[in-house]
Design a protein around this nucleic acid. Structure first.
Length: 185
DNA sequence: CGTACGATAGTCT
DNA sequence: GACTATCGTACGG
């Protein structure tokens, strides 16, 4: 079984969708071939109330995409040199997204959103593209189930400014079977 | 091992 | 002009 995740899949509650993304596949297709990786770590950013969510600062040119339909890519540049890949979730006018933090490609752990984007050749030219079309970049269910037990929950990273919102356990990480990626940072 | 810090540019005030 | 959902290197123990 190999199924491209649909728009309705991403329309659900962000935290639940985030948890369910662990064990799914991220697939990148450029002119020269295809790279697929199993998703190992994600973070949920939920609504304008969530101080850690970029959209909490309002609807700007940059955050506008999060207010749109689910299943769309939100890619931004951070610290002037790295890109971060997110999928927009929930309905229109409810700004939320899931940050993809780590994947496993052929047994090799790609740990960190910046490294992941570098590895897969993801940059801002992919911002706002539709991720439900199986074109350039998309998510796949390959029928591998992950038990809830195998998924750890942690606070999100790099958002100490977010007050109480920094304590939410909205980061999900698969305990690796290979032993790779034990580190939690 | 651990912690500290600089690089670098887009975004918002 | 300040800040940033990061990463790699440098250095101390």
């Amino acid at each position: 079984m190999r199924e491209v995740l649909s728009r309705s899949y991403f329309a659900g509650p962000t935290v639940e969708v985030a948890r369910s993304l662990i064990g799914k596949y991220l697939v990148r297709e450029n002119g020269h071939g295809q790279i697929a990786g199993k998703i190992v770590e994600v973070e949920a950013y939920v609504g304008s109330e969530d101080k850690a969510c970029h959209a909490s600062k309002g609807r700007t040119q940059r955050t506008d995409v999060m207010f749109g339909p689910p299943g769309v890519a939100y890619v931004y540049l951070i610290y002037g040199m790295y890109h971060c890949l997110n999928v927009v979730t929930e309905g229109e006018d409810f700004p939320a997204a899931i940050l993809i933090r780590a994947i496993e490609i052929e047994g090799r752990l790609i740990d960190g959103p910046g490294r992941l984007c570098r590895e897969m050749g993801i940059d801002r030219t992919l911002n706002r593209i539709d991720l439900t079309q199986g074109d350039a970049l998309w998510f796949e269910d390959r029928g591998q189930s992950v038990s809830k037990k195998a998924i750890g929950t942690f606070p999100r990273i790099g958002i100490d400014y977010a007050g109480e919102w920094a304590n939410k356990l909205w980061r999900f990480r698969m305990q690796s079977e290979t032993g790779a990626g034990r580190k939690t940072r």
